[in-house]
Nucleic acid binder design. Structure first.
Length: 501
RNA sequence: GGGGCGUUAGCUCAGCUGGUAGAGCAGCGGACUUUUAAUCCGUUUGUCGUGGGUUCGAUCCCCGCACGCCCUACCA
C-alpha cells in the first residue's frame, strides 16, 4: 500500500483530487473497499412486488430489504435526505434520516458522491408523493468512485466517449443498457431456436491455416512455436461442412468472424455470425427456417415481429418476399426490359452510367447482380429474399439443376441491408475442386479476395457430404434492426476504434 | 482510400465582425426532517484537440496533423 501511494496518478482535475482526499480519509478509518455486504433484493423486484402496497400494510407487516447499487441522485436536506440507487435491474429511492440512522453515518453520507456504490439496509415505505422507498437503518459505502459521472440530466452524448468508455455509457444511459439486454435476448432466442430444432452447437477454429468460406481480406498473424502464418477466420463455413461430413447432420456456430476491411455504420472488423448447416435440406427449406428464426428473435427481444426502424415500419410477421435478381430489378427499376437485362453489352453500358467498370470476365449473371446492387438493393426495406445468384460469385454453392449458370442461393435483405446469405451446399467434390481452381486463377489475376484452394476440405468432400443446406445470419445487423440502432457500433459493446489521440 | 462536418471546465452547452472565456450540472462552504434534474445563499475549476502561419493582438482567420461523426468505396 505504501508503494502504491508514491505511484498515485496526477489528478486531472480538482473534483478527482477531492475524491482522492475523501478516499484517503476512508482508508485511514479502516477497510475502504469492504466485500461483506450481501444485498437480498433488486430494485425492479421491489417495485414489482410492492408498488401496490400501502403504508398501513408496511406498518402492520414490515418488509426488510438489503439493497446495493450506484448512487445516481442525492438530495441532502438538513436532517433527512434522499438518494437514488441504481442496480442491474433499475432504481430504488432511499430515505436517509438522522432519526433512523446513527449520526456519524449520516454525517459521512453527506460527503459521499454521486457514483459511489452503497449498500443499504432498511424497510419499505411510501413517501408523501407515493414513491416506494427504503427507510434506511444501516448504510455503508462499499466502493468509493473517484471520477465524476456525466451530468445527471443530459447524461453522456459524446459518441466517442460512449464507444471508448462504454462503462460510463452503461452507467448513465438507460437506452444503452436496454440495447445490450435486447442483444442478449436475441442471442439466446436464436440459440434456443437452433437447439429446439435439433442443431448441435459447435466451436470451430478461429485461427485458420488457410482462410476460407467467404470472399474477404483476412487478418494475418503468426504462430511462434509452429513458426507458421495463421489467419483469423473470415467464416467458419468449411469447418462446419467438415462436421456434416463427419455425421453431425445439424450443426451451428454463433461467434466472431474477422475481416480486414473498411469500417462503416454496417461494418466492424470483427462481427458475429450465426452459421448453420442442415443435411437433407435445400435453400427453400433454409429460407423458411431463417425467417422463422429471425421472427422468433424479434419476438423474444421486443415482444412483436412488427418493428420500427429509423421511423419506418418493418414487418417481419408476414412471409418474406422472394424475388430473383432479375425480378428485383424489374420490380424496383421497371425502366429496364427483360431483353435489356439479358444483353451483356447493355448491362455494361448501364453500369458505366453508374460509374462502375465491370470486370472483363464478368458474365451476364454477375453484371445483372451488379446492376441489382445499384438500383434495387437499397430499396428492399421489408424482408426480401433475393435468389438465383450466378455461379461465378458463389464458389461454394450448388448449381441449379435447371440452369448451370446460377446457384441455389439466396441473400436476405431487410431495411436495404444484407442480413443473411445461404444456399444449397455444393457437395460434389470434383465440382468444388474445379471451383477452387477457378478462384486460384482469379487470385493470380489480381483478385485479392478470391478464395484459396483448401485441399483438406476437398478430401473431406471426397468422403461424401450428404445434400445439405447452410446459411449465415449477421447477428450485429439483426440486432441493429431489432433495437432500432443506426450504427453497428451501437450494438457492439466495445467497437473498434483508433488509438486515442 | 476519397469527401463533408466537428473538437471550449469532469459532464451538457453558449461565446457576435479578432481585444487572453461564460452558464447549468458536478465539486467545496452554509441553510433546510418527504425530496424527485430538490431548492436557496456563497464559492473553486480551463494548455479553448495539437503544431505552425497572418496580426499590435487568435477560441475566432489560413495551413498541416490527431481523433470523432456522417457520406462514399470494398464487404456481411
Amino acid at each position: 500500500m505504501s508503494e502504491q501511494e508514491d505511484n498515485l496518478p496526477v489528478d486531472e482535475n480538482h473534483v478527482i483530487a477531492e475524491r482522492r482526499e475523501k478516499l484517503k480519509a476512508i482508508r485511514a478509518q479502516g477497510i475502504a473497499f469492504p466485500n461483506d455486504f450481501k444485498p437480498d433484493a433488486l430494485a425492479a423486484n421491489i417495485h414489482a412486488a410492492h408498488s401496490g402496497t400501502e403504508n398501513e400494510a408496511f406498518e402492520a407487516k414490515p418488509v426488510h430489504v438489503k439493497v446495493a447499487g450506484r448512487m445516481m441522485l442525492k438530495r441532502v436536506m438538513g436532517k433527512a435526505s434522499f438518494a437514488t440507487l441504481q442496480d442491474k435491474s433499475g432504481r430504488i429511492q432511499l430515505f436517509i434520516g438522522s432519526s433512523n440512522l446513527d449520526e456519524a453515518t449520516y454525517e459521512a453520507f453527506k460527503h459521499w458522491d454521486l457514483g459511489d456504490i452503497l449498500g443499504a439496509t432498511g424497510h419499505l415505505f411510501k413517501t408523501k408523493t407515493g414513491e416506494l422507498s427504503v427507510k434506511v437503518t444501516e448504510l455503508r459505502l462499499l466502493t468509493k468512485s473517484l471520477r465524476p459521472l456525466p451530468e445527471k440530466f443530459h447524461g453522456l452524448t459524446d459518441q466517442e466517449v460512449k464507444y471508448r468508455q462504454r462503462y460510463v455509457d452503461l452507467i448513465v444511459n438507460e437506452e444503452t443498457r436496454a440495447t445490450f439486454m435486447a442483444r442478449s435476448k436475441v442471442v439466446s432466442a436464436i440459440r434456443n431456436f437452433m437447439i429446439q430444432n435439433e442443431f448441435l452447437e459447435v466451436e470451430t477454429p478461429m485461427l485458420h491455416p488457410i482462410p476460407g468460406g467467404a470472399s474477404a481480406k483476412p487478418f494475418m498473424t503468426h504462430h511462434n512455436a509452429l513458426d507458421m502464418q495463421m489467419f483469423m477466420r473470415i467464416a467458419p463455413e468449411l469447418y462446419l461442412k467438415r462436421l456434416v461430413v463427419g455425421g453431425f447432420e445439424r450443426v451451428f456456430e454463433m461467434n466472431r468472424n474477422f475481416r480486414n476491411e473498411g469500417l462503416s455504420v454496417r461494418h466492424n472488423p470483427e462481427f458475429t455470425m450465426m452459421e448453420f448447416y442442415a443435411a437433407y435440406t435445400d435453400y427453400h427449406w433454409l429460407m423458411t427456417f431463417t425467417e422463422d428464426c429471425i421472427r422468433a428473435a424479434a419476438i423474444a427481444a421486443r415482444g412483436t415481429a412488427t418493428l420500427s426502424y429509423d421511423g419506418k415500419e418493418v414487418d417481419l410477421s408476414k412471409p418474406f418476399e422472394r424475388l430473383t435478381v432479375i425480378g428485383a430489378i424489374q420490380k424496383h427499376a421497371p425502366e429496364f426490359t427483360l431483353a435489356q437485362l439479358n444483353d451483356e453489352d447493355f448491362l455494361r453500358k448501364e453500369l458505366k452510367k453508374h460509374g462502375l467498370e465491370a470486370n472483363k470476365h464478368a458474365g451476364v449473371g454477375s453484371l445483372q447482380l451488379s446492376l441489382f446492387e445499384e438500383v434495387a438493393e437499397a430499396k428492399l426495406w421489408n424482408p426480401t429474399y433475393i435468389i438465383d445468384y450466378p455461379v461465378e460469385v458463389s464458389p461454394l454453392a450448388r448449381a441449379s439443376d435447371k440452369n448451370p449458370e446460377i446457384t441455389e442461393r439466396f441473400e436476405l435483405f431487410i431495411t436495404g441491408r444484407e442480413m443473411a446469405n445461404g444456399f444449397s451446399e455444393l457437395n460434389d467434390a470434383e465440382d468444388q475442386a474445379a471451383r477452387f481452381n477457378a478462384q486460384m486463377k482469379a487470385k493470380e489475376a489480381g483478385d485479392t479476395e478470391a478464395m484459396y484452394y483448401d485441399a483438406d476440405f476437398i478430401r473431406a468432400l471426397e468422403y461424401g457430404m450428404p445434400p445439405t443446406g447452410g446459411c449465415g445470419i449477421g447477428i450485429d445487423r439483426l440486432v441493429m434492426l431489432i433495437t432500432d440502432s443506426p450504427s453497428i457500433r451501437d450494438v457492439i459493446l466495445f467497437p473498434h476504434m483508433r488509438a486515442e489521440a
